[in-house]
């Protein structure tokens, strides 16, 4: 099985998986970070309670997160086609990945920011800090470790989701596993893709935890 074609295909698949995962994570945070921050800030014990904004974001997050990713993937195909021009391949997969990751990340960010000690926020308020300063210099800065742990978990989750997109020809390692392992009964190739996926998640987890611990000043 170790022909140069297969090796080339696996390398390309790994590249496509990483491409989808990282790009989706990035755009996921472009949506999720502000959304999660808004959720934390407008919650009733946040620094700027606003029941309307909170409720709207809360409902959106819950709706998107309750749709299984595989269904979401198919559901948004028209939108994907409109945005990317086609509905298969790694770039097309990024669209549903970002849509699924955004609210997921928002919840992660929300819970990280809510862990920040209320007393420290109060201290900043007593110094005359405005909402934006508190968000930037207190909430996000103090929650740094927790946010990085969240990022690590998010990348792992998106990596898993990206493999699911293989069902509709999403490209990457998941696609290879399904095409060879499921449609062609070539179990060996499927096993190799699984090993690569496991290694990727493993490395990611270790590096992510290492960085977040390294940056934590509470130890």
């Amino acid at each position: 099985m170790w022909s140069s074609t297969v090796i080339h295909m696996l390398l390309e698949g790994t590249g496509a998986t990483l491409y989808m995962t990282l790009v989706s994570t990035f755009f996921g945070y472009v949506i999720g970070l502000p959304m999660g921050t808004l959720l934390a800030v407008t919650d009733k014990d946040g620094i700027r309670p606003n029941a309307v904004i909170y409720k709207i974001l809360d409902v959106i997050a819950n709706i998107v997160r309750s749709i299984p990713f595989l269904i979401l993937l198919i559901l948004v195909i028209p939108f994907t086609r409109f945005l990317v021009g086609k509905s298969y391949g790694s770039t097309a997969t990024i669209v549903p990945l970002v849509l699924a990751a955004g609210p997921f990340i928002a919840r992660m960010v929300e819970s990280s920011l809510k862990e920040v000690d209320k007393g420290v926020i109060e201290a900043a308020q007593s110094m005359g800090a405005g909402t934006f300063t508190i968000i930037w210099k207190v909430l996000l800065a103090e929650a740094r470790t927790s946010l990085l742990v969240g990022l690590t978990i998010t990348i792992g989750t998106i990596l898993g989701y990206s493999a699911m997109a293989g069902v509709v020809g999403g490209g990457g390692l998941g696609d290879i596993a399904i095409r060879y392992g499921y449609y062609r009964y070539q179990t060996d190739i499927m096993l190799v893709t699984i090993v690569i996926l496991v290694l990727l998640v493993q490395i990611l987890q270790v590096v992510g935890m290492l960085i977040s611990r390294k940056l934590d000043r509470r130890l």
């Binding site: 000690d117 007393g119 420290v120 109060e122 201290a123 007593s126 110094m127 207190v138 800065a141 103090e142 740094r144 470790t145 934590d216 000043r217 509470r218």
Partner: peptide, 13 residues
């Protein structure tokens, strides 16, 4: 200014 029982320093600074 205000100081607190639990100091409320920024732990990451």
């Amino acid at each position: 200014g205000m100081i607190f029982q639990h100091f409320n320093l920024l732990m990451q600074r």
